[in-house]
Design a binder for these strands. Structure first.
Lengths: 183, 183
DNA sequence: CTTTTTGCAAATTCTTTGCAGCCCA
DNA sequence: TGGGCTGCAAAGAATTTGCAAAAAG
């Protein structure tokens, strides 16, 4: 079993290997052609930024990063592009407790991973477990399904929340102070 | 491994055994007392209707059923009550692809189950697999977490969608014709 | 040139809140 | 009584849509 350690919330630490990104870009180009989509700088930018995001970005976060490179991109374009990316199978969306849709890179080539979420402080860890995946396929097969993707989220208490009974988690404030900076 | 068969979308087929409902009701009463909540006919009605729902009801569906018994109940009360039920650990919420929050009965006594969702027709199957659960606890333990609850959703193609390449799924229309009957 | 795409703002949808009156304890 | 509870309507938040101007092929 392999697991990836501790990557709390959004700021991406290490972008995906350029190789993988190219695989997805190729798939994106293919999708564009197949659907007669035009190539626009905004869309390409959004796709690029998205593919460089490590994990589960919200539209707001994504747009923020996109605007670092082109300040004139609007929300609508991001929403529209994410819809395309989902259709293209490059992105999947997730809902953790807060009312935000988060997106992350998807695809058969991706080393898939699941999430472990602390209900007290919102810390999100990632992990991967081949055996679980195998059992999932098993179950699906038994019911006649063919699995395309899946979503596994474990909710509980992180070590910190457990260790200090009644105490705080580091993230607790940062969640409350969530700067809702949309105009 | 045990699995529960085929219960497409909402209309509940078989309510939970009265025994189980009583366990939850007892827990609810306990929660009420502990939180100094008053007993009101609306809330009790909502709780009762909810506990009798087989699976993943949306607020809209829930309210509709509640109104069969008391037409004057409002959305706000349902939302507020569902929040309490979640706090009380009697309900958990889920998001499948449509922009609706769905709720379902939860609790340690519940034989927990996960979902298998057809991306073509929206069919939702349920299943349960103890071994997967065990592996989940395992992973969590390794990362120092204590799991409270979890969410496993497998997305793919149902037998029908697989069997008839390019063909339709039964549910396809009913999803499109989704009567958005809110005033 | 034609067709898509964009950005804005307005519209929708789902959910939460403020508040006056109602009701349980 | 008196603080919680309800229903309504208004407020919020996230996402979608209509449209004229801009960009792509």
């Amino acid at each position: 079993m392999a697991y990836v350690e501790d990557r709390p919330h959004s700021p991406p630490n290490q972008p995906l290997p350029a190789l993988d990104i190219n695989i997805w870009k190729r798939r994106w180009v293919e999708f564009q052609r197949h659907h007669g989509l035009k190539t626009t700088s905004q869309r390409e930018l959004i796709v690029d930024v998205f593919l460089h995001c490590q994990e589960h970005v919200s539209v707001e976060e994504l747009l923020q990063r996109v605007r670092e490179r082109n300040a004139r991109v609007g929300y609508a374009t991001v929403y529209r592009t994410m819809k395309l990316l989902i259709e293209a199978g490059l992105a999947v969306c997730r809902h953790f407790g807060d009312g935000q849709t988060r997106y992350e890179v998807s695809g058969p080539e991706t080393p898939h991973h699941d999430h472990l979420i602390c209900e007290r402080c919102g810390l999100i860890l990632e992990f991967e477990n081949d055996e679980i995946e195998r059992l999932q396929d098993n179950v699906a097969q038994r019911l006649g399904f063919k699995i395309v993707r899946h979503k596994l989220e474990l909710y509980g208490l992180c070590p910190k929340a457990l260790g200090v009974p009644g105490g705080h988690c580091p993230d607790e404030e940062s969640r409350a102070a969530k700067t809702n900076s949309r105009p």
